[in-house]
Design a protein around this nucleic acid. Structure first.
Length: 488
RNA sequence: GGCGCCGUACCCAAGUGGUAAGGGAGCAGUCUGCAAAACUGCGAUGCAGCGGUUCGAACCCGCUCGGCGCCUCCA
């Protein structure tokens, strides 16, 4: 039974969907005017894992994640670069998919864009105006917080407290400093759509209300996003949606903590952020390996807490993951083991129970990973004792199965990169191509030579080969039968 | 000023009333021609500090110290 921490109630609650076996969830995506950093990756990953886990529990999940593709920052960026807004958003949406794809984050069921829902947004705004929850001033339309009695319910703030912190440059046309724009009149040269209030564009918060309703209905199960969206974005979404429909909006509100650098929030304004692509570009490991390292790292802390990003943390994640892939290597080898499998069956059963109860406990991925580490240790012992071929296959399959929710252990083997790679600064788009200097057949050839050397007890030559490969990042492990395996 | 979070071993990190999971790093041993991997063992009598409640507290309460977030665009 899955329990989730619900920001709305401030408690952990048992998750029960509106319709049995069906989950409808909406997650706030990104404003597409720049490349994503690890903070964005964490958020995307947390909800990807939630979705995967729900699916593994047998739910049919409709997962909607939006792109904000009309916004001040986009307009600014477009003007700076003298291109259209459309060019900017198209570019960064594509980049989003590339980056998140490398992290194994699956595309959502629906990925709507604000600009595709202008009619819905206008309609929703009209509903709010008709209910006296919004008012129009000179082509702008504002939500009137004073007329919505439950304003502050999500963020646990009172309107009076908010006034104290309100900005100085309050628009005089607003009836209350906290009133926020549903519709903005547009200046010349800005993207604009016709509306009952003249040419304009939507405010930020209204798009999510409109799109979630359109794709999931007026009431749905889970709404997620980063902690920083609680106020004002999600607070405003609730006001707009509940205000318009008079119904409950989302039932469970789930928010992930920040990625930090040196204990400080990673953010554009502080300039202490690392983009996802930058991390992949600087990585000394292959894309596939780096993606899994990042995933492991991001899931090694509970999603609700802060997470400090550092090279050392990545290195530790990589080392931890090495243990799993070393085991998978052993499991893949032909062997003559005959050990019966009852103890394996028991270990697997234990792990399933442990894994499920960890994930059920508000997606406690650190504990879930600890359970997998436990299974790794158990299986290693069994392999030492001579686990049968069938047992090895079963064990590998089990890691794949349990790892699926976390998106781990899906690769067959790890191919490490660039200790032995060279960078060729060529391409048209300015990026570089990394090419391996040593290919697999080179390595195999050297291993054969070394094996021959060892057979004639020429250990000096054997060690030379070992050293030479090691210098290029290839590590040799000798097996009892006289053959060797290698890894990077 | 208002609201809120965090402080667990060298590092990361679970645990939120019943006597400190897991990982990384390290050390020692077994195995190995050597090595790697694996296995075995070692590692916080204590959970920022000080008080209090309790038979019992890392977990509850109070105070203090240190770090951070939101209130403005932000995953």
């Amino acid at each position: 039974m899955l329990k989730l921490f619900n920001t709305l109630t401030g408690r952990q609650e048992v998750f029960e969907p509106i319709e049995p076996k069906k989950v409808r969830m909406y997650v706030c995506g990104v404003t597409v005017y720049d490349y994503c950093h690890i903070g964005h990756a964490r958020s995307a990953l947390v909800f990807d894992v939630l979705r995967r886990y729900l699916e593994s529990c047998g739910y049919n999940v409709t997962f909607v994640k939006n792109f904000t593709d009309v916004d001040d920052k986009i307009i600014k960026r477009a003007n700076e670069q003298r291109v259209s807004c459309d060019a900017i958003t198209t570019k960064y949406i594509q980049a989003y998919h590339e980056d998140m794809g490398k992290l194994g984050i699956r595309v959502a069921t629906e990925e709507p864009k604000a600009t595709e829902h202008i009619a819905d947004i206008i309609q929703l705004t009209e509903r709010l105006v008709a209910k006296s929850l919004a008012y129009a001033v000179e082509g702008d339309v504002y939500f009137e917080v004073a007329n919505y009695s439950e304003y502050g319910r999500l963020s646990k703030r009172r309107l009076e407290d908010l006034q104290a912190g309100a900005r100085v440059d309050v628009d005089e046309r607003k009836r209350h400093p906290m009133d926020f724009a549903l519709w903005k009149s547009s200046k010349p040269g800005e993207p604009a759509w016709e509306s009952p209030w003249g040419a304009g564009r939507p405010g930020w918060h209204i798009e999510c209300s409109a799109m979630s309703m359109q794709h999931l209905g007026e009431t749905f199960d889970i709404h997620g996003g980063g902690m920083d969206l609680i106020f004002p974005h999600h607070e405003n979404e609730i006001a707009q949606s509940c205000g318009a429909t008079g119904k409950e909006f989302a039932r469970y509100w789930v928010h992930n903590g920040f990625v930090q650098v040196n204990q400080e929030k990673m953010s554009k304004s502080l300039g202490n952020f690392f983009t996802i692509r930058e991390i992949f570009e600087k990585s000394e490991w292959s894309e596939e390996v780096m993606g899994e390292i990042l995933r492991y790292f991001l899931l090694s802390t509970h999603y609700h807490g802060p997470l400090d990003f550092s090279d050392q943390a990545l290195k530790e994640a990589k080392n931890a993951l090495n243990g799993f892939y070393d085991l998978f290597g052993r499991l893949a080898e032909p062997g003559v083991g005959t050990m019966p499998n009852p103890s394996l069956t028991q270990a697997i059963e234990r792990s399933r129970v442990g894994f499920t109860s960890a994930m059920d406990d508000d997606l406690n991925t650190p504990v879930a990973i600890a359970v997998l580490q436990g299974l790794r240790s158990d299986v290693n012992k069994m392999v030492d004792k001579g686990l049968s071929i069938e047992g090895r296959k079963e064990a590998r399959q089990e890691f794949r199965l349990l790892g699926e929710s976390l998106g781990l252990f899906q690769a067959d083997t790890w191919q490490f990169g660039s200790a032995i790679a060279e960078t060729l600064p060529i391409n048209l788009d300015g990026t570089a191509t990394v090419r391996l200097v040593l290919n697999e057949s080179d390595i195999e050839r050297m291993l054969i030579e070394r094996r021959e050397a060892r057979n004639r007890k020429d250990f000096q030559r054997a060690d030379e080969i070992r050293k030479s490969l090691a210098a290029q990042g290839v590590i040799i492990e000798d097996k009892p039968d006289g053959t060797s395996r290698w890894k990077r």
